[in-house]
Amino acid sequence: MIEAIAQQPILAALIALVGLGILFGALLGFAAEKFKVEGDPIVEQIDELLPQTQCGQCGFPGCRPYAESIASGDAINKCPPGGQATINSIANLLDVPAPELDAEHGEEADLRTVAYIREDECIGCTKCIQACPVDAILGAAKLMHTVIANECTGCDLCVEPCPVDCIDMLPVQETIKEWHWPAPPTTADLIASDRSPSAIGGPQL
């Protein structure tokens, strides 16, 4: 048999190639089953970069739906809480140019805010509790509500449903522990004669 095949080079090549084809095909088929990736990994990666405020300013009900939308080709500049930093990192991930933030969806805030309920005015309607995407509001029907400040993402979603307007978005004050050095002035804007006299003067005692 082997001799017969060896006599016929064309047949031999055919058998060898078909054999290899079947072998590798089986291998690939096995690998595809064995190492199957559940879900879309790019969605996970984009979701990692989004700020998770779950505010819905992008027009999607939460950060993950927006990540899914970006993965299928949506614009990456619809997230005001993340701001330019988030846009840049998503652009970096997807290897696309980073656009400016789309002003239609809101502006980037300078300070992180958290919701604060003026407790005397709260009537206990539970509307804000239902609106909160991260369950950061505590309370029960006809009882005062309060916000767990540590869990609040500052998404604003509780402000609008409140019938008595007792929710404020307050900026989070930076503590001495969170403070870090500001960037030194860059070479471009540091000209000795432009500096204010107070910057040159001695210590204020």
């Binding site: 979701d47 989004l50 700020p51 998770q52 405020t53 779950q54 939460g62 950060c63 993950r64 909160c132 995407p133 991260v134 369950d135 950061a136 869990e151 993402t153 969170e178 870090h180």
Partner: peptide
């Protein structure tokens, strides 16, 4: 360090959001 703290916070928020859903 600030970015790391923010990452921790956003991971926590994601967990809570997913639980809420």
């Amino acid at each position: 360090q600030k970015a790391r703290a923010e990452k921790v916070r956003s991971d926590h928020a994601r967990e809570r959001f997913e639980f809420h859903q």
